[in-house]
Amino acid sequence: MNWLNPTYSAVDAQGENVTYRDGKRLAWAWSVINPFFAWIGIGLYTLTDQVWLLWFPILQGYVLFPLLDMIIGEDTNNPPEILVPQLEADRYYRWLTYLVVPMHYIVFIGAAVWLARADLPWHGYLAVSITLGLAAGLGINTGHELGHKPRKLDRWLAKFVLAVPFYGHFWIEHNRGHHRQVSTPDDVASSRMGENIYRFALREIPGACKRAWLLEKGRLERRGKSVWSRDNEILHSYAISIILQGGILIALGWQMLPFLVIHNFLAWWQLTSANYIEHYGLLRDKLPNGKYEPCAPYHSWNSNHKLTNQILFHLQRHSDHHANMSRAYQSLRDFPDLPRLPNGYYGMFLVAYVPPLWFRVMDKRLLALKHIQGDLTKVNIDPEKRAAIELKYGASHG
């Protein structure tokens, strides 16, 4: 098999030979080197001594990437379903998720050492801290991909990469909490129509942490163990965080404490930003037995924008991920009539940070969805905003 561009093949039920080549195979490596974008500003500053260039990675993420997403466009290609087992058995894709884990440690520790030694004004220190926090947010995305896999190695690597931003509870909460309650009023990680991102963050960040601990506590109690036992998988990652970030403070001094606080918060904020845009206003129907219907592709907002999907391990094909959470990133599919975001995640984050603009862009898009068609009873609405929304759009257009 040609490792650089292998051909997968099989014979279908009709006796036809089906073949497939992943045209994005090598491009997936961008997800591995993407964390190093945090060093671009440091490199530019070193070459020019211009402090303002330390802000370039932020400009790259929030201006250049959205523009490139618009220019390059979308990719709606799906691998043939009969060949998905071969695609997912290809260890190349798995090794990419493994390789990116040490990259996050190299980026974090290297930049911290540089920052401790650099003579920067406060705004330069702030730029590096924010940039490293955004890079650590990519680590949460890596932890997301690894934490969904049943292999013990993958889950330990998820704990290690989530330790960089001190967010080790994420994969517990995400797998056992968010995926079960997604797109319902019960889910702290699903945003509601009329809820701005800042109010959402106040609900989601502490709520997700609390839910993770309750879930892990329940799991351990069912096994007759204490939540403070060594089998607590949240504590595994937290212990690594304490060693890593405690080591930074011991080795480089207490002047690194503001860096760590900003770094950690910005990583958490990246996750919150993604959670906010991924399920905004979408609602699963409640069945007669009181349970919610199974999660379907139309319960998540989707984006097929090529550039940002390549650097985020296909996170933006979120619809198939939630409907089929065990599928690997390289085989996630597009579907017709999905809720679609008008840009990739970075562009939509920027829109979300300006709530009036977000509501203007997304509310009518939400109500126009095929399975909603203006019916507010099929929308997850912020209770505090319900009266105003019903006044604006009518109690039900169904």
Score class of each variant (00 low, 15 high):
R360D: 02
E221C: 07
K210S: 01
L315Q: 03
H314S: 09
L312E: 00
F359K: 05
G61Q: 13
L357I: 14
L215N: 01
A10D: 04
P356T: 11
W301L: 03
D231F: 15
G124K: 11
A208N: 12
G374S: 04
R180T: 10
Q86W: 06
M193W: 10
A127T: 08
R222K: 07
R21Q: 09
Q330V: 14
H318I: 04
L115S: 08
L282D: 03
Y105W: 12
S191Q: 02
I243T: 10
C295K: 01
K225V: 11
M256S: 13
K217E: 00
G224K: 05
E293L: 10
I40K: 11
W213E: 00
Y93C: 11
F37R: 08
K385H: 08
G124N: 06
I243Q: 02
R117D: 00
R203A: 06
T19P: 02
I130W: 03
L369N: 00
W55E: 01
L260W: 02
Y238E: 03
R284S: 03
A388N: 05
A368M: 02
N302M: 05
P121A: 12
W156M: 06
D375L: 04
L257P: 06
N302V: 08
K291R: 10
V182K: 04
L235T: 15
P80Q: 03
F259A: 11
G168P: 07
L53R: 09
W114N: 05
H178G: 10
D49L: 14
G218T: 09
Y198N: 12
G110L: 07
L350W: 11
M103R: 12
Q181P: 08
R317S: 04
E221Q: 06
R151I: 13
G15C: 14
I250Y: 07
